[in-house]
């Protein structure tokens, strides 16, 4: 029968290695070969990708904050953190994917300290370059973090942030501070609802819309996407 397994079938051995069923001795022996054999590494990679379909079975569990701190200590000790990523000029030359990714980065004020999880992200942009923000949202702390990619409100004006939840009228989340990055606290009654809301920025008089509805042009729009 053609399906009789042979002990020297590297393809099967690679699958056994990826599954993790080998004895410690066989596992170590296989791992030792991996360093020198590109073909074997390729076989492992193919099986890893095949079995990746099962990864949905792993439920997410937040590790305690102490793990993050211990990790930081182990890797970086007490060293000071570099700050050059904060330079805005650097940002303009990056692709959106990188930008969106880095937006989260910069939103964490001190590099690698306990920080809330981001549960959704959005990029807010419009046809004009009046204002462009990268935003991440953490539902647990009801906090939006933004990084300004482009644009400042005109003299005597403010940018106001709105959340559009389903078919409801836009709800104001307040005026966006002028800083390059910062946080906006979301009212608790909205906290759970805005994880996949559309966010929009309008041009308003200083201090925000006097009417509770957007009065100026909508300059920038983006949808929060849960991650």
């Amino acid at each position: 029968m053609s399906k009789q397994p042979r002990d020297d079938d590297d393809g099967v051995l690679a699958a056994e290695y990826v599954l993790g069923v080998l004895t410690p001795g066989d596992r170590n022996a296989f791992a030792a070969r991996l360093g020198g054999e590109a073909a074997l590494r390729a076989l492992v990679r193919v099986w890893e990708q095949n079995f990746a379909a099962f990864n949905g079975e792993y439920e997410s569990v937040n590790p305690p904050a102490a793990v993050r701190n211990a990790l930081h200590e182990k890797l970086f000790g007490g060293e000071a953190k570099a700050g050059f990523w904060q330079s805005l000029g650097f940002w303009r030359n990056l692709s959106f994917a990188t930008l969106a990714a880095l937006a989260l980065t910069i939103a964490v004020p001190y590099a690698f300290k306990p920080a809330p999880q981001a549960t959704s992200i959005a990029e807010l942009s419009g046809e004009t370059k009046a204002v462009k923000l990268a935003v991440s949202y953490d539902v647990a702390s009801a906090t939006l973090r933004y990084t300004r990619v482009e644009g400042q409100a005109a003299e005597g004006r403010d940018f106001e942030l709105w959340a559009v939840i389903g078919k409801d009228a836009p709800v104001s989340l307040g005026v966006i501070p002028a800083s390059a990055s910062g946080t906006i606290k979301v009212p608790s009654q909205l906290a759970a609802k805005i994880s996949d809301a559309v966010l929009a920025i309008s041009d308003e008089p200083k201090g925000g819309s006097p009417t509770g509805k957007a009065t100026g042009a909508v300059l920038s729009v983006g949808k929060l996407t849960p991650i």
Partner: peptide, 11 residues
Amino acid sequence: NRPAFGSLYDM
């Protein structure tokens, strides 16, 4: 990039 590492960890 350490800040990126911090974000990767958080995500």
